[in-house]
Simulated scan of single mutants.
Amino acid sequence: MSFALVTGAAKGIGKGIAKELARLDFDLLLVDMDEVELAVTKKELESTSGSLVYTLPLDLSSPGALQTIMSWTSIWHDELQVVVNNAGYGLNGSFEQLELEEQLNMIDVNIKAQVSLSHAYIPVLKKQGQAFLLNVGSTTCYQTVPYLNVYAASKAFVVSFTRGLRFELRNTPVSVSVLIPGSTDTDFVNRARMSAEVKKTAERFNMSPGLVGKIAVRGLFKGKAEIIPGFSNKLHAFFPRFFPKSFVEKIGGNIYKPKAPNAKLIKTAPVSLAIK
């Protein structure tokens, strides 16, 4: 049986992807910093599938995280066929007011961990007759998003990096794809400390993590370059290019600008919203 490695797998989109891979009879190597939820996910997947599920509680931003994961997975490298770099999070607020350390940690998880794991596992995946690497971005990658600034910029990096990597590996057994989800019913908005108004708006567009996981895995095995789940997310990815950047930035800024208590909500047109 083949193995799949999934980071950020305790809940949300990562869990949705893990469930779909288990349904396709992959054994699973799951990594997440939330040890409690990771144990819950392991138990759930083992009870609903015939897959073996191994877990590693780990913060990908911690020193030596890459070495820890590589050492842990080493006994399964001959059978590792899929690597999913899903772990990531956002922070809502002005760049100036958010703690610099928090924002640098976000870059460590959203960018450095993806790059490090991709670099480490490509030689492992190349040993297979066919293998797959999936990095997870966000529809925010297609536009500047004030007050979600560093997160959106990190996801723009992910998409550019993944597409470049896909081209470089086009003549190898490794197929590289990027998942670009929009608003999904996960804990992302709480982790990002978004306002109640933003949460309410996001709920209008939410997809379920399970559905996103199914679409992600289906697109990955079809060899798609960019996998954008949901019609509304495809529109959000497509339309910003036809409007002045200043207009798109103003809409995003109005949505994500932290509101003072009892502040009057500014009505804006819907655009791409938070994911994961």
Score class of each variant (00 low, 15 high):
Glu20Trp: 06
Glu20Lys: 15
Leu21Ser: 03
Arg23Asp: 00
Arg23Phe: 05
Leu24Cys: 03
Leu24Thr: 00
Asp25Thr: 12
Asp25Tyr: 07
Phe26Ser: 03
Phe26Met: 02
Phe26Lys: 02
Asp27Met: 02
Asp27Ser: 14
Leu29Pro: 00
Leu29Val: 01
Leu30Arg: 13
Leu30Gln: 12
Leu30Pro: 12
Val31Met: 02
Asp32Thr: 10
Asp32Ala: 13
Asp34His: 11
Asp34Thr: 09
Glu35Met: 05
Val36Asn: 04
Leu38Tyr: 05
Leu38Thr: 08
Ala39Met: 07
Val40Cys: 07
Lys42Tyr: 00
Lys42Gln: 15
Lys42Ile: 04
Lys43Phe: 01
Leu45Arg: 02
Leu45Val: 02
Leu45Met: 13
Glu46Asn: 04
Glu46Arg: 13
Ser47Asn: 11
Thr48Phe: 08
Gly50Tyr: 06
Ser51Phe: 05
Ser51Val: 03
Leu52Met: 15
Val53Trp: 08
Tyr54Asp: 12
Leu56Ser: 07
Leu56Thr: 04
Leu58Ser: 09
Asp59Cys: 06
Leu60Lys: 10
Ser61Cys: 04
Ser61Asp: 07
Ser61Asn: 10
Gly64Leu: 08
Ala65Glu: 05
Met70Ile: 08
Met70Trp: 08
Ser71Ile: 00
Ser71Trp: 01
Thr73Leu: 06
Thr73Val: 15
Ser74Asp: 10
Ile75Pro: 06
Trp76Glu: 10
Trp76Met: 12
His77Ala: 10
Asp78Ala: 10
Glu79Thr: 09
Glu79Ala: 13
Glu79Phe: 12
Glu79Tyr: 12
Gln81Pro: 00
Gln81Leu: 04
Val83Thr: 11
Val83Cys: 08
Val83Asp: 11
Asn85Met: 13
Asn86Leu: 06
Asn86Asp: 07
Gly88Met: 08
Gly88Ala: 11
Gly88Val: 09
Tyr89Phe: 15
Tyr89Lys: 11
Gly90Gln: 01
Gly90Met: 00
Gly90Asp: 01
Leu91Pro: 02
Asn92Pro: 00
Asn92Arg: 09
Asn92Ile: 03
Gly93Ala: 08
Gly93Glu: 04
Ser94Asp: 08
Phe95Cys: 06
Phe95Ser: 05
Glu96Trp: 09
Glu96Met: 11
Glu96Asp: 08
Gln97Val: 06
Gln97Gly: 01
Leu98Thr: 09
Leu98Gln: 12
Glu99Lys: 14
Leu100Thr: 15
Leu100Arg: 14
Leu100Ala: 14
Glu102Pro: 01
Glu102Tyr: 01
Gln103Thr: 07
Gln103Met: 11
Leu104Phe: 04
Leu104Ala: 03
Asn105Gln: 12
Asn105Ala: 11
Asn105His: 10
Met106Ser: 03
Ile107Asn: 06
Asp108Asn: 15
Val109Gly: 10
Val109Ser: 11
Val109Met: 06
Asn110Ile: 00
Lys112Ser: 06
Ala113Lys: 09
Val115Gly: 00
Ser116His: 07
Leu117Lys: 06
Ser118His: 05
Ser118Leu: 05
His119Val: 07
His119Pro: 00
His119Ser: 14
His119Asn: 13
